[in-house]
């Protein structure tokens, strides 16, 4: 693992994305559209969806993340650049970390744009006091999504089904993450009402940390087999 090599991969992805903006823009528009649909799916009259906010947010984010995950490897695969990476004297784990960080950055960019809009649309309580907790719970979930997603997107791009395979293998593996993410994000938005709820939120946060560590290790251990014959 070599920091400057990881950085080179991240920078390459970010520079070409900033040039075309196709990924971030479509991810952001996806989240916006999801919000509009949520409004009509869950009561256009009573707009305080605070109790369900965590669930709505993660429904949108999870599906949105798959757009980016697929895209980041379609580039590499179609232009044959994955071979270029594999030919160079970098560890496979460096490639994993580089691609993972790139995916993480794009997720965060879209979230930074989308969360304020979401809050204005659906949240009627002031959660600024719990902003730190909110950001932490989103970041922890993002790390897990990027780790699992980068690993599984590399598999799906190598299949005949290409990007069609990703949802089928990525969503079930990420369900535990989503459950914990919804609990902790909802908790940060609505605040804990009782000691029991506080307990639940803190175990969800701990679960997120455990999930991140476990899947970072799994991805690290398995990536060799995923990218190389």
């Amino acid at each position: 693992m070599n920091l400057s090599q990881i950085w080179a991969i991240v920078k390459k992805d970010v520079v070409s994305e900033l040039r075309t903006k196709e990924m971030v823009v479509s991810m952001f528009l996806f989240v916006m559209l999801a919000m509009v649909i949520f409004n009509y799916a869950f009561g256009a009259e009573k707009n305080d969806l605070t109790p369900y906010a965590g669930g709505l947010l993660w429904t949108a984010f999870l599906f949105m993340s798959m757009l980016g995950l697929n895209r980041s490897f379609v580039h590499e695969k179609d232009e044959g650049c994955l071979d270029g990476l594999l030919l160079s004297p970098v560890d496979r784990s460096t490639i994993l970390l580089g691609k993972m960080l790139g995916n993480l950055i794009f997720l965060i960019i879209v979230q930074v744009l989308a969360v304020p809009v979401f809050a204005v649309f659906f949240i009627e309580v002031n959660f600024l006091g719990r902003l730190g907790q909110f950001i932490l719970s989103i970041l922890l979930s993002d790390i897990g999504i990027s780790a699992v997603g980068t690993l599984l997107a590399t598999i799906s791009i190598n299949s005949k089904m290409r990007d069609m395979l990703l949802p089928i293998i990525f969503l079930p593996v990420s369900i535990p993450l989503v459950i914990a993410a919804v609990i902790s994000t909802s908790g940060a938005l609505a605040g804990a009402g009782s000691p029991d709820e506080l307990q639940q939120i803190s175990s969800a946060m701990k679960f997120l940390v455990a999930y991140d560590i476990i899947f970072l290790l799994v991805a690290y251990a398995l990536y060799d087999f995923v990218v190389g014959e």
């Binding site: 369900i175 029991d196 639940q200 175990s203 455990a210 899947f215």
Partner: peptide, 14 residues
Amino acid sequence: VSVPLTFFSIRLIP
């Protein structure tokens, strides 16, 4: 690896 994680995550909800 996801089997025990699923098991525990479901139990986060009472």
